[in-house]
Amino acid sequence: MHDFLNNIVSFHKSLIVGFALAATCSLLSVFVVLRRMAMISEAVAHAGIGGIAVALLAGYFFPATDGPVMQQIITGIFCLGTALAIGYVTRTRRVTEDSAIGIFLVASMALGILLLSVRSKFPVLSGQTRPASIESVLFGDLISVTTTDMWIAIVATVVVFGLVIALYNEFLYTTLDEQMARINGVNTRLINTLQLAMISLVIVVGVRMVGALMITAMTILPGATACMISRRFNGVLVGSLLVGILGIGGALLLAINPPLSSYTSGPVLVLTLFLIFVVVWGIRHIFKPKIEYETVVGGHADEHDHEHENEHSQLH
């Protein structure tokens, strides 16, 4: 028990980053799932590999752009640029969205791996950021987050929650019915761009911790699980936050303590969320919810529907 508490104190930065990331990813995952943007989220995450490689190389040639904050900014711009490029290429409908996602996903990943190899050929000067290995970019490193990472995660969380709370109805309307929202004066182009920017932000912050391959899961699984729990939007939001925070919190405690502490942490986080998803799916599958319209009667249309059924049965 003493060791367990000691670990929590030693890894408090990891825990803070973990919970911040869990809350932010869970909130965004509701919109990602309901807007069917899961694959775009995947493409942005893979663009993170390209972004990190570009940032590292830029840091070597232009020392002013070196350092964790500048690296995050460059990676974020690269991710957002990729997401916007997918949207732009598919706007003319000559390239379908799934093709564009596939193309940009592999291209940015290939660019990332190539540039990381190029960077590894150059020497590391004193004071420069050490080039990341491909493994660490793919799978992240939860345990070695820095104070700067912690502050970046806290700022990202405040920004994302602030935007979603301030523009809650605009986000909800655009997610529910984009065309109708546009007709009613919502700037849907701005809302879409903000959504992509927020996804890029959490992915950039999360890539260091759980890796490019795993961060996508955090922006999909909590929302997908919560959609099975509630049929109300507020319920889905709360459910997603609970699943994300409890899931990632639990997984973090597992990952910083033996016996799992000696393994890569990213997969533990993702598998914990997947386990929750499977359990909820199993429960919903076994205990199918009653269809409400069969039990609730009282609406005008329902009454008429019943009248029509009676008429039909009389005719037969």
């Binding site: 309901l34 109805n169 605009e170 909800l172 309307y173 529910l176 929202a181 009613n184 004066g185 919502v186 959609c227 509630s230 049929r231 109300r232 939007f233 319920g235 889905v236």
Partner: peptide, 18 residues
Amino acid sequence: DWTFPITVRQVVQLGLIG
């Protein structure tokens, strides 16, 4: 998408967004 998790009241309320 009529499977969207939202109540009737919320959908109607969004008509006021403009």
